[in-house]
């Protein structure tokens, strides 16, 4: 883990209220050790606590985040201009475990989709052929769909049916065989619960969000009860296997 200054590059709105930010840094912070599903904690000027955002993608010296402006902190982030500096603590959390012998299905909803992009790239790098199911409320809110479509089979769903399959991500989920397939998912809690009910096998991995104090396991602010005891979402998570979840 390191806490490094990074410089804001592009920071463009890619859907209403959703931004793609590129952060530039020299060397050490971004390495092959970054695991998909891990996150960074951003020190934003004028705010005491840091803001956790998932790693959407990275390449040598450039970190890409996709975030929604939902409150004061992320709104401030969205107004940052090219060249501005930001302290970034990373990498945080456990990240997804890639299961090499299971056909991967990625299920994402809204701002739960960004971490699945880097996951998708890593799965492909490992020689797998993932399928992505991306859920939104309506056509105008869709983002990252073409980025996924360039990598893998991508199914779009919208609640109002204005694009792709009408309904929820779970409506587009094919019948899966637990011996040969698995699901990696991230999204709002209601969506995670629906996936939890639809795919009843233990290897499925869910990524959670909680309000955080530190983001690196020291304060116990983000602790949750699981089948295997108390877990800190920031350190022992954010990714939990289905069999660990108490739902």
């Amino acid at each position: 883990m390191v806490d490094v200054p990074m410089l804001v590059g592009a920071n463009a709105e890619i859907a209403p209220g959703v931004y793609r930010m590129q952060l530039y840094t020299d060397g050490v912070a971004l390495t092959e050790e970054l695991r998909p599903g891990q996150f960074v904690n951003l020190k934003i000027d004028g705010f005491y606590l840091r803001r956790p955002i998932s790693i959407c993608d990275w390449s040598h010296g450039v970190l890409t985040l996709v975030y929604k402006a939902v409150g004061e902190g992320t709104r401030h982030l969205s107004a940052m201009e090219e060249g501005a500096a930001l302290r970034v603590l990373l990498p945080l959390g456990n990240g997804y475990t890639l299961l090499p012998d299971k056909q991967p299905v990625l299920v994402g909803g809204g701002v739960g989709i960004p971490p699945l992009y880097y996951l998708c790239k890593e799965l492909i790098r490992a020689g797998q052929k993932p399928t992505a199911i991306l859920g939104f409320n309506t056509a105008s809110e869709v983002f990252l769909q073409s980025a996924f479509a360039a990598l893998c089979d991508t199914i779009l769903t919208t609640v109002d049916g204005s694009a792709g399959v009408k309904g929820f991500v779970t409506d587009a989920l094919p019948k899966l065989n637990p011996d040969t397939s698995t699901v990696y998912t991230c999204g709002p809690e209601a969506m995670l619960r629906a996936v939890f009910r639809s795919v009843e096998f233990s290897s499925v991995q869910f990524s959670f969000e909680e309000r955080m104090g530190c983001g690196f396991g020291a304060c116990m602010c983000c602790s949750c009860k699981t089948v295997t005891g108390y877990k800190r979402i920031c350190k022992d998570g954010p990714v939990l296997r289905r069999e660990e979840i108490l739902w």
Binding site: Y48, L49, E210, R211, M212, G213, C221, C222, S223, K225
Partner: peptide
């Protein structure tokens, strides 16, 4: 275990 979540809030 402590108290229910959320159990942290940002402040000025």
């Amino acid at each position: 275990f402590g108290n229910p979540l959320p159990r942290v809030a940002d402040c000025p």
